[in-house]
Computed example of a mutant assay.
Amino acid sequence: MNEIKLGDVTVTRVEEQHGPVMPARDFFPDLPERAWQEHRAELEPDFLGADDLVRSSMQTWLLRSEGRTILVDTAVGNDKSRPAVPAWDHLRLDYLDRLRAAGVRPEDVDLVVHTHLHLDHIGWNTRLDGGTWVPTFPNATYLMPRADFEHWDPARNPAVAGGVNENAFEDSIQPVLEAGQVRLWEDAHAIDANLRLEAAPGHTPGSSVVQLASGSDRAVFAGDVLHTPLQLAEPDHSSCFCEDPVQARATRRRLLGWAADEDVLLLPAHFGGHSALEVERRGGAFAIKRWGPFPRR
């Protein structure tokens, strides 16, 4: 089953796709080759292929909390023009069928939460309808970090035009803004009694995490604070997509230390395999204490 219970919150893993993304040396240009080789056995096949391509999952965390249906991040999306990432260009995937299989129709979604606004976290915000981008979730409020909203808007920040997020603001953010469904937040935001957004900048200016505290259970939906388990043993190395690698490193160390010290279940955005894990301190770094309760896939 792809569903677990944490206190009063039901958590369901809805995967859009899983597979190779890019060469390890390009994804993490500062990570030494010896680190990949030393940890290859624990990385293959879920996080690293024999071809040295990093493997990632594009997925949504579906939460049911206090009577509401909540989506955390919305993956890559269909029909999107993505010149910066050819593998994600004009996809035709069955994500909405997978969401329905989890018991959720688009109109059932009350809240869409974005840990940040990279193209692989906002794609299903909208769908193509007769040549027009319309909100996929017509009854939902879309919670977006203000710092990212302002950073990725090419009208406000022309420097981002033509970069990794090319076309993403226009086709996945602007339509829900025009529909009046966007709510911006900054610093911290209480979603409900069980869930809270906290700023976790570095990967992007507005990167955040969703903290869950319900009963005795603690978890954190960690977005892109880390992309691979190798960053537990090598926490000072950031991905090539991190806007501020130094801040990303500080955020990662702070989050991993808290998760280790407080026995918090960690749910990164792009981990395949069991998708969730508990971590522990090991020397000046971290290690997997145990994998989470989702079945490996």
Rank of each mutant, 00 (worst) to 15 (best):
L128W: 06
D129P: 07
D129Q: 07
G130W: 04
G130R: 13
G131H: 04
G131R: 08
T132S: 04
T132M: 00
W133N: 02
T136H: 00
T136Q: 01
T136C: 07
T136F: 00
F137T: 02
F137A: 00
N139R: 07
A140Y: 08
T141H: 03
Y142N: 07
L143S: 06
L143W: 06
L143A: 13
R146Y: 01
A147M: 01
A147Y: 08
D148I: 03
D148L: 06
F149E: 12
E150Q: 05
E150R: 06
H151W: 06
W152C: 00
D153R: 04
P154M: 03
A155C: 03
R156Q: 15
R156N: 08
A159N: 12
A159T: 05
G162Q: 06
G162Y: 03
G162E: 09
V164S: 09
N165Y: 05
N167L: 06
F169P: 10
F169V: 07
E170N: 03
S172K: 02
L177Y: 12
L177V: 08
E178H: 08
E178I: 01
A179L: 01
V182C: 07
L184A: 13
D187G: 06
D187A: 14
D187Y: 05
A188C: 05
A188T: 06
H189A: 09
D192Q: 10
N194D: 15
R196V: 08
L197A: 09
L197G: 10
P201M: 03
P201I: 09
G206S: 11
S207D: 14
V210I: 13
Q211M: 11
L212Q: 13
L212E: 15
L212T: 09
L212K: 11
A213F: 05
S216I: 03
R218L: 15
R218Y: 12
V220M: 14
V220R: 14
A222N: 11
G223D: 13
L226T: 11
L226S: 12
P229Q: 12
L230K: 01
L230E: 10
L230I: 15
Q231R: 08
L232Y: 05
A233Y: 08
E234Y: 13
P235R: 03
D236F: 02
S238K: 06
S238L: 04
S239C: 04
C240N: 14
F241T: 08
E243Y: 10
P245S: 10
P245K: 01
